[in-house]
C-alpha cells in the first residue's frame, strides 16, 4: 500500500470506530431501558479504571496469563515435535496427516467436562484444554512445512554434497519456517481463546471467570469492562504478531 492509501484506510477505520462509539453513547444516554444489555459508555470506562486500580485485573491476569503461556508452550513443543517427525517421511505424512486433520474437525469442546474431571477445576484443566486445541494447527502446519520442501532444492543440495545436518539447517528449516510460524500464530490464538473459554465455562479464577461471574450477577458494565480488557489484549497481541511477521518476511 502506498502512504496515501494507508492513510485513507486508517481514517476509514477511525471513522468506523468513532461512529460505533458515538452510536453506543447516544443510544445509551437517550434511554434507560437498555442499560442491562448495553451499559453507558462512561460507566464501562469507570469500571475499567476501578478494576485496574483495585488490583482485581492484576489478580485475574496473574491466573490467566500463565495458563495461556503453559498451554501454548505444551502445544508448541508437542506440535512441532510430532509435525517434524511425521513431516520428514512421505509415508508417515500420507498415513497420519488425514488422521490428524480428521481429529482436528472434532470439536474438542465436547471433551471439556472430561478435562475438568481429570485435571480439576483449577488452571490445570484449562492448560490441558488450551494445549489440546493449540496442538493440531501447529502439528498440521509443521507437517505441511516439512513435507512441501521443493525436491529440486533437496536434490541440488545433495548433489553438492550437503551433510544431513546441512540439509536440515540450510534447506529444510528455511523452507518450512514460514509455514511453521503461521501454525504457531494460529495455535497461539486458538489456545488463547480456548483458555478464556474454559475459564468462562467452568473455573474458579481468571479473566474468563470474572466475565462469567459479572454476567451471572447482571453487572453488565463490569462485564463489558472485562471484555474490553480482552479486546485490548487481542489488539495488542495482533499488532505485535503482525510486526514480528513483517520483520521476518523482510529478512
Amino acid at each position: 500500500m502506498s502512504g496515501r492509501e494507508r492513510l485513507g484506510a486508517l481514517s476509514m477505520q477511525t471513522a468506523f470506530l468513532a461512529v460505533l462509539f458515538s452510536v453506543w453513547y447516544v443510544v445509551t444516554e437517550g434511554s434507560q431501558i437498555t442499560s442491562l444489555f448495553l451499559p453507558r459508555l462512561p460507566r464501562v470506562w469507570s469500571e475499567m479504571v476501578g478494576l485496574a486500580a483495585s488490583g482485581r485485573l492484576y489478580a485475574a491476569a496473574l491466573v490467566t496469563i500463565p495458563t495461556i503461556a503453559k498451554a501454548f508452550a505444551i502445544a508448541a513443543i508437542f506440535g512441532i515435535a510430532v509435525g517434524f517427525l511425521v513431516g520428514r517421511s512421505e509415508r508417515l505424512v500420507r498415513l497420519l496427516e488425514p488422521v490428524l486433520s480428521g481429529m482436528f474437525a472434532i470439536p474438542i469442546t465436547l471433551f471439556f467436562p472430561l478435562f475438568i474431571l481429570f485435571f480439576g477445576i483449577g488452571p490445570d484443566s484449562k492448560v490441558a484444554y488450551g494445549a489440546a486445541y493449540g496442538f493440531f494447527p501447529i502439528a498440521l502446519n509443521t507437517i505441511a512445512g516439512f513435507s512441501n520442501v521443493d525436491a529440486h532444492f533437496l536434490r541440488a543440495a545433495k548433489a553438492m554434497g550437503a551433510s544431513r545436518y546441512q540439509l536440515f539447517r540450510h534447506v529444510y528449516l528455511p523452507a518450512a519456517m514460514p509455514v511453521v510460524l503461521t501454525g504457531l500464530r494460529i495455535g497461539f490464538f486458538i489456545s488463547f481463546a480456548a483458555v478464556l473459554g474454559g475459564e468462562t465455562i467452568s473455573s474458579a479464577a481468571g479473566i474468563g471467570r470474572a466475565i462469567a461471574l459479572s454476567g451471572e450477577l447482571m453487572e453488565t458494565a463490569r462485564m463489558f469492562a472485562w471484555i474490553g480488557f480482552v479486546v485490548l489484549a487481542t489488539m495488542i497481541l495482533n499488532i505485535v504478531v503482525l510486526a514480528a511477521e513483517s520483520r521476518t518476511r523482510r529478512d
Binding site: Q13, F16, L36, F37, F189, F192, A193, L196, G197, T200, I201, I207, G208, I211, A212, S214, G215, E216, M218, T220, M223, F224, W226, I227, V230, V231, T234, M235, N238
Partner: peptide, 19 residues
C-alpha cells in the same frame, strides 16, 4: 476491522449473548 473482530476470542461474549 472484520479481521480484528474475527481475532477476538468470542467466547468472552458468551455471558452477554446469554443475557
Amino acid at each position: 476491522i472484520v479481521l480484528f473482530l474475527y481475532a477476538i476470542p468470542q467466547v468472552v461474549l458468551l455471558p452477554l449473548v446469554v443475557l
